[in-house]
Design a protein around this nucleic acid. Structure first.
Lengths: 232, 232
DNA sequence: CGGGATCCCAGCAGATACTG
DNA sequence: CAGTATCTGCTGGGATCCCG
């Protein structure tokens, strides 16, 4: 029988792949990092997965205690899937893989490749340069969706659908916003022609732009995997 | 055509999984991190892979320029597979995944799980605590194999079959050596009854033992971010 | 003998249709 | 909306065979 085909190796990597190594699983975790998601959201966010396979993966993730079902609160009385602490603990590994995969990523999406702003905003988390006392927030609105970036003392928090108040709001289409955040397009040009709007405390933008660590990933950092201790 | 089923997403993680997301691939990379390997070595190191699939994966890795064929030098005139720089660049991601998977790893191999000392020694790389001017080396001999750990200024280098001179040599079976390195067994006890032998500059051991970072991985970095909202 | 290729079959993945 | 049922084709596992 040999149920649930696994590697049967006493090795952390093999065990990780036993749990999250199958097709679609890590992409599912990636999308759940933005916050709780409903089944339909996930179907739409993962084109090609097929509804049966999504259900199977969610079941497996639930059994592995990486995901739990939660009831969404007031307006939408539906269930959603949310990462547990163990699931969120995968985030460093996802960032490491994404950083490596980014080496193969063209500047613009190839025709046929889907692009989602949420994926891009997640990638900013690993480029974040805190700076002293930044601690502000940015709301990003695009295609009927809302993202919230909280620039914390140490980490950048990115959520979707989380309507936290933000002093600065950016509105526009997905690609122009991404190009703006990573410095491949200038704010002035996009405001003029690209359909990007800033509302609120615009003077915050230059500091936020810096903190999002533009282009700092071309050079591999000397300490890629933070062994930081001694939290002052 | 839609050849070579991929995710078709403009996302670093998805691209990474397009390249190395299929079954056995990352385990193959892991084993190649110890140095060039011949086909037969890999077949033996990855029980269950099946010769055809190994050949296919190696071909794919070659096409992706993560692996190259090299000719082994003098004594054995055979070909081997070696990671390219791009392939080695996967190492941080493997360590991050392995660290996460290590949370699911029991203290001792479950019956039926294979254990390889090379996998364990690789895991030491992410626990390494350089200390000032350690810069020595340790040879590990077990079951007819030789590993060499070079304790560098910043990183620990681990290779198999690389006969660099080392002032200290440890000989014994795989599990006792692993237990010794991670502090779950004492040197005195293992020398007395466990079949572990130290030869050379034994006084180096205490410093090496410290640098291998015993038990320093229980504390993952504290990232609270538990702000649950909306349950009003 | 190392380094694969070939064949076969079980199980997984993909797409669509259907149901509470 | 949130899945389940079903069908089909493809991938992966295992054994055997081949070729230098």
């Amino acid at each position: 029988m040999q149920s649930r085909r696994g590697y049967h190796q006493h090795c952390g990597l093999a065990k990780a792949l036993d749990v999250v190594g199958e097709r679609w699983t890590l992409l599912l975790v990636r999308d759940l990092l933005l916050g709780p998601r409903r089944y339909g959201d996930l179907v739409e966010a993962l084109p090609g997965i097929g509804t049966n396979l999504l259900a199977k993966r969610l079941r497996e993730l639930e059994e592995a205690d990486l995901v739990t079902k939660v009831k969404l609160p007031a307006p939408v009385s539906a269930v959603a899937y949310e990462l547990t602490a163990e699931g969120r603990a995968l985030e460093p590994a996802l960032h490491a893989l994404a950083r490596w995969g980014g080496l193969f990523l063209p500047a613009k999406p190839k025709r046929g490749d889907r692009f989602d702003l949420g994926w891009y905003l997640l990638s900013l988390k690993r480029r974040y340069l805190p700076g002293e006392g930044v601690r502000t927030a940015l709301a990003v609105k695009t295609a009927g969706r809302v993202f919230c970036l909280v620039l914390g003392e140490r980490v950048l928090d990115v959520r979707e659908g989380d309507d936290a108040p933000a002093p600065l709001t950016i509105t526009g289409e997905m690609m122009p916003i991404a190009m703006l955040c990573n410095g491949r397009a200038s704010l002035a040009a996009l405001e003029r022609e690209g359909g990007v709007k800033l509302e609120g405390a615009r003077d915050l933008w230059s500091e936020i732009f810096r903190a999002l660590g533009n282009g700092s990933e071309t050079t591999t950092r000397p300490r890629p995997r933070g062994t930081r201790r001694g939290t002052s």
